[in-house]
Amino acid sequence: MDARLIQAAQIGSIEDLHELLRENPLILHTVNLFSIGNPLHIASASGHDGFVMEITRLKPEFTKELNRDGFNPMHMAAANGHLEVVRELLKVDRGLSCLEGREKKTPLHYAAIKGRVDEIIEMLMSSPECIGHVTIQGETALHLAIKNSKVEAARVLVDWVREMKNESVLNLKDEQGNTVIELLLGWGSTHSSLEVNAINQSGLTALDLLQIFPSKAGDLEIAEILQRNGARRARDLTASQMPTIEYQNQFSNIPTTPERPQSHPRNLLEYFKFKKGRDSPSEARTVLLLVASLVATSTFQMGLSPPGGTWQDNYVPDQNKATSTDEAHVAGTSILATSDRVSFLLFALFNSIGFVVSFHD
């Protein structure tokens, strides 16, 4: 590459570029014949957005070329935090955020490694699908942000995953088999700012929230990871394990009233009543299904074997014996129905209602 073209790109001089073009109109067309990079790489790394805009107007194909280190101009702009250059390059091709270089790393990967939050947001707005791209080591941008302790970048990426409802990204594993949850917990073991038993304003831990608000997939694996790292339900935490300072400060202005004995009937009713925030919907659902199953089983069984049993034979009273008080009956019919029809009808009615209601929830 002409030394003067290199210098023009380094200082971002559009005038020098035009002067070179007047001298040699083909100078940009011969760059790739003699160089392992192009002036757009240099200008992008230096953050000269005006020069970048002019070069991309003249040679837009420069945006996709890789230099000898496996970087395209977008890689260099994103890694170095040149937001305006990133914007100019995206005007040429919105897909540049996902363009792979060495080790299949995209510009989004390098922005995550360096913690370039503004550049991350700009690229995700342009190409949301980039968040699922993985390197040759199976790492997403979120993996790389966590591994490089870029907390703000990781937060932005997690928020974006939630906004796009693309939680499957959180379950992707790198070549060591680590999900981002495992990396976060591993990172937290050496960074005291991450507490797996931290309690929110509702008095719930991460494990509580996972069970109260289940997602479609990955809950069991995440729960196991949390528990391996000491996560507990809020109700299972001892006084020494619970971060009481933050919890008490959040509720210090709430007036307290003496508790009544738990044996009081009104307290028993309150105790067994479902309360949002205290009880897990998934656990309540499990209990209801269990109760419904028991009711269905018992009512069905009672229908097959009513109280008093069933007659085992057929009987027709002898009409010639005036003293006979036995009722006629047929084998398999209820003895109670023969001796007390009203009681049997009441039993059959309520048993049938219980059986039918057990199927409705």
Rank of each mutant, 00 (worst) to 15 (best):
D118R: 15
Y110Q: 14
D93C: 05
E119S: 09
I120H: 08
H143N: 02
A112P: 02
M125C: 14
V117P: 10
A78M: 03
A141F: 05
G115C: 01
N80I: 04
E100M: 14
L124V: 02
S97D: 05
E100Q: 13
L142E: 08
L144H: 09
I131F: 06
E129Q: 14
E100W: 15
C98E: 10
E88Q: 08
Q137G: 11
E84Q: 10
T106N: 00
E139T: 02
E88F: 08
A111F: 02
V117R: 12
R102K: 12
H133N: 15
E103C: 06
T135Y: 11
A79M: 06
K91A: 07
P128M: 07
C130S: 10
Y110L: 12
E122W: 07
A79T: 05
R94I: 12
C130W: 00
C130E: 04
E88M: 09
R116Y: 00
E103T: 07
E88S: 09
D93S: 04
K104Q: 15
R102Q: 13
L89I: 06
I136A: 12
L144D: 11
H109S: 03
G95S: 11
I131N: 10
L89E: 03
I113D: 04
S126V: 03
E122A: 10
C98L: 14
P128L: 05
A111T: 02
L89A: 02
M125H: 13
S126L: 05
N80H: 15
E122L: 07
I120G: 00
D118N: 14
E84G: 10
A112N: 01
P128W: 03
A141E: 02
A112T: 01
R116Q: 09
E139S: 08
L96M: 06
T106Y: 00
G115A: 00
E139K: 14
R102I: 09
E139C: 02
A79V: 00
K104R: 15
S97C: 10
L99D: 06
A141N: 01
A112I: 01
C130V: 04
R116N: 09
V92P: 00
L90G: 01
E100D: 07
D118E: 15
E88T: 07
R102N: 13
T140W: 00
M125E: 13
L142M: 05
Y110C: 11
M123D: 08
T135C: 11
H133A: 14
T135V: 05
L83W: 10
C98D: 11
Y110P: 03
S97E: 01
H133E: 13
L108W: 02
A112G: 01
L83F: 09
V134W: 12
L89C: 08
L90E: 02
L124C: 06
K91D: 08
Y110W: 13
V117Y: 12
E129L: 13
L96F: 03
G101Y: 13
L90I: 07
K91E: 07
Q137P: 06
